[in-house]
Nucleic acid binder design. Structure first.
Length: 892
RNA sequence: AGGCGCGUAGCUCAGGGGGAGAGCACUUGCUUGACGCGCAAGUGGUCAGGAGUUCAAAUCUCCUCGCGCCUACCA
């Protein structure tokens, strides 16, 4: 590209779209099918088609994108599969709402038309999130876009269902399940959100039935009095003397007048309430189990709408369950059966989609027998076949798998994978098949009715890592990219999704679905609260990208993505990191100004061995360290470390020191030096851009396109910079530190004594031996950096009168300030220095005075402390002398 | 009830047995031949509290307090 000058500030508008198009046209993110590069693959956690990009997605995508772009640089063949999830209940709800506006229900449309309507909705709105994924710069392979309801994945779902059924791992039966009366469907245990609410515990009298002399009664305690209408027993603990004599007798259920038995079961907690439990097998999970065990009647009094049915009795039939509760309580009270009512905090299950209170409900459902699958999923992590980062989530993962219960997978909705099961209307035979059966294999009847229910959305999500790669076909993709390298996700779906993918992957692919699982943080608001629409504290990632640029936003997420801690996000933070993006832009602008000046004849190839200047040697040394630190950090998922290292290096080393140090060379007369400086500057800039690119792809690519003479325009295809071991020379850091100390010392004097920056100063520095030789070689540089007009470095020098002074590396330095400031200020400044050094000296001397330390600590530690002591003492003495001299001057 | 995590500068957070760190904020000064979205120099800390292990603890162990989250059949 040409040698245009960059604008004064970075403006992301236009830039981002330009490069997105560029990368897409170049197919930069499709794996390189022909090459034998090592595979690296990630499947995207598929967002709901109903969704719009939120902070959680943004973080999730940014981290995956960093990993993918980084691994491309490392030479891997990278595949990142994008896609969306059909989100059964959520999507159906959305479309039903739209229908409601037209005054229609899905029942009015019928199943087929309704499904058609959902597909239409999906085509129209479902791609919104895909554009947003694109917008954030996610380097996915769009040619492999998948959807959980598309043909291939639907085929995988059927295959899995049928195989599990044939293996006896899927079964159908009447059980009590979590029912959402609003969504009209069963939910898995995981889909129920428990929430603490203030409820009440009602104590109700159940009079004893039996003989004429039976005058007694038992008192039960319940939070759901309306369910008493379906009570079929009262249970007590078998060893509870209070009640043991009553076991086997009967009570008369108030309001209903039904006689029900008193049974004994050790499940009952003697300490809770009265120690006497009413049993409603049809409407309580535990009571259901009790009912089965004791062969109790099962009376359903609540229907699938959450209303009381005829079984509840004519007085109550048709009432909503909560209205009924009030009525029951009122009647009990009127008839003298209500003993008391206590407040009680307890947790109540709510639907995770619509937040309606869950109703335990008995119905015919399909289940996956998970224990055998769970065991394998557990072992794979225990054996290290899959590693979870941060490691502590492993325990949570184990705990869940160890206590897992069968998974209810049928949903009474229409949008989803319809269960491939048919019942023969003639003979009642149940058929489970991959292909729709034309007739009953048993009686040849053609009157078959397909199961109405669809599968839990997570059932298809569980297959995602292999279904997206073409399973059950034996595809090239499967062979090359399964198991995937890493799964990046939030902990909130560790059970929902991660554990289930592990189970299915191991069962059907005989191998784990991913080598690593990286669990990232939750993005919260600035106060640390979860973002939610109802709280009104959501920060829209799209707005942030519009306002500050995608790079600034991505860098912010990365810089805060420390393992195991949530991210508190705020607009100010993003704004802060925009400054960094702009800083990079301006550093590049400066560099490119000088690179652009260069003519072909002047141009020098970058050859580190020939660069003798301190600045170049130092920056190249540091660059080597940074390269290895960033690589190490990213391989360990320490994203914040990578971001932090680069921030510090680019701003405070490259910009603050290196660029300042090479200015005299760049603006100087010596053409050879100038050319060398340009070559090094260019190299360092290019490597910085490569290192930053995975985090902030746009600004780096934009700058890259301006680099003169660069043949490869596509930064996304650049390799991670090679190591230059010859540039590592630790002693250069020490030298640099010395120089920086001298410069900072002068700047400090200037600043603390209030001398104008424009005022050129004189500096007299005592130094000898190698140190002096070194400083002499850097004389011009020091004069430039410290803004000096005179610099003298001598082994012996007479302190000029009326000067400010300091001690650096044991050498006194003097800055004559007689006419600029009063002696008082300088005395105060020296006192401050002395106070500092005294403090440090005290710490070190105390340590060395400790015999235990000197005897037991490792020799190198003790030596270090001794050296420090010597340095500090020396510095203290010298500072004191300087102070004395100045005080004398003042007095005389 | 059990489990996990957190408590470090005013704020947000790194660090994780041998000199308390960063960013933001704050103070002072500044048209410094890239950048005021900037430059330079500074101020600021009983590393929640207590006990223990150790020559040495912000760091390891235990306890206490506070905060957050997850899991559970808390009628």
């Amino acid at each position: 590209m040409g040698a245009q000058e960059l604008s004064k500030g970075y403006d992301p508008r236009g830039v981002e779209e330009k490069w997105l198009k560029f990368w897409e046209e170049k197919k930069s993110f499709s794996p390189d099918a022909n090459k034998v590069k090592k595979p690296y693959s990630i499947v995207i956690p598929p967002p709901n088609v109903t969704g719009t990009l939120h902070m959680g997605h943004a973080l999730n995508l940014t981290l995956q994108d960093i990993l993918c772009r980084f691994h491309r640089q490392l030479g891997y063949d990278v595949l990142w599969v994008p896609g969306t999830d059909h989100a059964g209940i959520a999507t159906q709800n959305v479309v039903e709402k739209a229908l409601a506006k037209e005054g229609k229900t899905r029942q009015m449309l019928g199943r087929e038309k309704f499904i058609k309507r959902v597909w239409e909705w999906k085509e129209e709105y479902g791609n919104k999130i895909l554009n947003q994924i694109r917008r954030i710069g996610a380097s996915v392979d769009w040619s492999r876009l998948r959807f959980t309801m598309d043909q291939g994945l639907s085929r995988a779902v059927r295959e899995v269902f049928v195989r599990l059924y044939e293996e006896g791992l899927i079964y159908q039966g009447d059980y009590i399940i979590n029912w959402c009366p609003r969504c009209h469907t069963a939910l898995a245990d995981l889909e129920v959100e428990h929430e603490e609410v203030l409820g009440a515990l009602y104590y109700i009298k159940y009079p004893l039935a039996g003989g004429t002399d039976a005058k007694g009664e038992v008192i039960v305690a319940t939070t759901r009095p309306e369910t008493m209408l379906g009570d079929t027993a009262v249970a007590v603990h078998p060893e509870d003397e209070k009640y043991s004599h009553l076991v086997g007798q009967e009570v008369i259920l108030p309001l209903v007048q039904r006689k029900i038995p008193i049974i004994a079961d050790s499940y009952v907690d003697r300490e809770f309430g009265t120690g006497c439990l009413k049993v409603t097998p049809a409407h309580d999970m535990n009571d259901f189990e009790l009912g089965k065990k004791h062969q109790l009647d099962l009376i359903q009094v609540i229907d699938d709408e959450g209303r009381m049915n005829e079984q509840a009795g004519p007085e109550f039939a048709g009432l909503d369950r909560f209205e009924c509760r009030e009525k029951v309580v009122q009647l009990l009270e009127e008839q003298g059966f209500l003993v008391k009512k206590e407040d009680l905090r307890h947790s109540v299950g709510h639907c995770y989609r619509c937040h309606t209170v869950i109703e335990p409900y008995v119905s015919k459902q399909w289940f996956v027998k998970v224990e055998p699958l769970a065991k394998k999923a557990r072992d794979a992590v225990a054996d290290g076949k899959t590693k979870i980062f941060p490691e502590h989530w492993t325990k949570t993962y184990f705990e869940w798998l160890d206590n897992i219960k069968d998974w209810c997978i049928s949903r009474q909705i229409w949008w989803g994978h319809r269960i491939p099961a048919w019942t023969c209307e003639s003979c009642g035979h149940l058929i489970v098949a991959r292909e729709d059966p034309p007739e009953c294999p048993k009686c040849k009847s053609v009157h078959l009715s397909q199961e109405e229910d669809v599968l839990d959305t997570w059932f298809s999500s569980a297959l995602w890592p292999f279904s997206t790669l073409g399973w059950p076909e034996k595809t090239h993709e499967l062979e090359k990219f399964y198991p995937t390298s890493v799964l990046v996700t939030g902990f909130d779906i560790l059970f929902f999704w991660v554990a289930r993918m592990m189970m299915m992957g191991l069962h059907f692919m005989k191998d784990v679905p991913f080598r690593h699982v990286y669990i990232h943080a939750l993005v919260r608001d600035a106060q640390g609260q979860k973002m939610s629409k109802s709280k009104g504290n959501v920060i829209d990632p799209l707005l942030m990208m519009d306002k500050f640029g995608t790079d600034a936003f991505r860098f912010t997420l990365t810089a805060f993505a420390a393992m195991g801690r949530d991210i508190k996000m705020s607009e100010e933070r993003i704004e802060g990191y925009r400054h960094f993006i702009n800083k990079i832009w301006n550093a590049a602008r400066f560099a490119l100004m000088h690179l652009a000046e260069e003519t072909e004849e002047e141009k020098v190839e970058f050859e580190p061995a020939r660069l003798s200047g301190l600045a170049h040697q130092w920056i190249l040394h540091r660059l080597e360290e940074v390269k290895s630190e960033v690589r190490k950090a990213l391989l360990a998922y320490q994203f914040n470390d990578a971001a932090g290292t680069l921030y510090q290096f680019v701003w405070h080393e490259f910009c603050d020191w290196y660029l300042e140090m090479i200015k005299p060379e760049l603006y100087g007369e010596d053409e050879a030096v100038k050319a060398g400086a340009r070559a090094c500057l260019k190299q360092v800039l290019m490597e910085i851009l490569i290192l930053l690119h995975p985090i902030i792809p746009f600004v780096t690519q934009e700058v890259w396109s301006y680099i003169p003479g660069e043949k490869n325009l596509n930064l996304a295809q650049e390799s991670y910079p090679e190591t230059r071991a010859e540039c590592l020379q630790p002693d250069i850091v020490e030298k640099m530190q010395f120089l920086q100390d001298v410069v900072v010392s002068v700047r400090n004097i200037r600043s603390e004594l209030g001398i104008a920056p424009a005022q050129r100063l004189k500096l007299y520095l005592r130094a000898d031996g190698d140190d002096r030789d070194f400083l002499l070689t850097q004389k011009n540089l020091i004069m430039h950096l410290a803004r000096l007009e005179v610099l003298e470095i001598e082994p012996d020098l007479t302190p000029p009168s009326g000067s400010a002074s300091n001690v650096v590396k044991g050498y006194e330095l003097y800055v004559p300030v007689k006419d600029l400031v009063d002696i008082e200020s300088e005395l105060a400044r020296l006192d401050k220095e002395l106070k500092k050094i005294n403090k440090e000296l005290e710490i070190v001397s105390r340590k060395l005075a400790n015999e235990g330390f000197v005897n037991k600590a490792p020799a190198h530690v003790v030596d270090k402390e001794k050296l420090k002591l010597k340095e500090f003492e020396d510095k203290k003495i010298k500072l004191e002398k300087l102070r004395e001299r100045l005080a004398d001057l003042k007095n005389g």
